[in-house]
Amino acid sequence: MKSAEILRASLKWGGLLALAIAVVGGGLGYLVDGNRGLTSALIGTAMSIVFLGITAASILFANRWFGTDLFVPIFFGIVMGGWLIKFVLFLVLAVLLKDQPWINPTVLFLSIIAGVIGALTVDVIIVSKSRMPYVSDVTLPGDEKRPN
């Protein structure tokens, strides 16, 4: 199993989990505060899963430069740059959403927490179940025919 497969699996299962949390959280939000609760739960889940998914997505994207001379600086530039942009976006979103009349802050907060904890759980399960060879991401003779 290559690192890219693990990251892709985490994105896939993270997305599915976000759907589940959106359905459950949206239902609970609707029961608590009608349409305001539903909207807040959906936005909160989307925020948590998108922001946690950016790390895996940026690693996958940065791996396109694997093997080049500048791989290490490019890789960490993209991953850390993505991290910084993500936090600036998150802060801006928080400030913008805070005082909107169509947002229920408590439901939004709880759905963000649910999304973050759920995403972390999925990540841990995927990493603990993955089997990576000691020397990873190498191409052996005959591997060219196999799909990655």
Binding site: A4, D123, S136
Partner: peptide, 20 residues
């Protein structure tokens, strides 16, 4: 450098927990 793939996954899970 040949361990980059493994280290990336460990780094990713470490970042995920810390950034949470």
């Amino acid at each position: 450098p040949e361990l980059a793939g493994r280290l990336q996954v460990l780094m990713w899970i470490g970042i995920a927990f810390t950034e949470a």
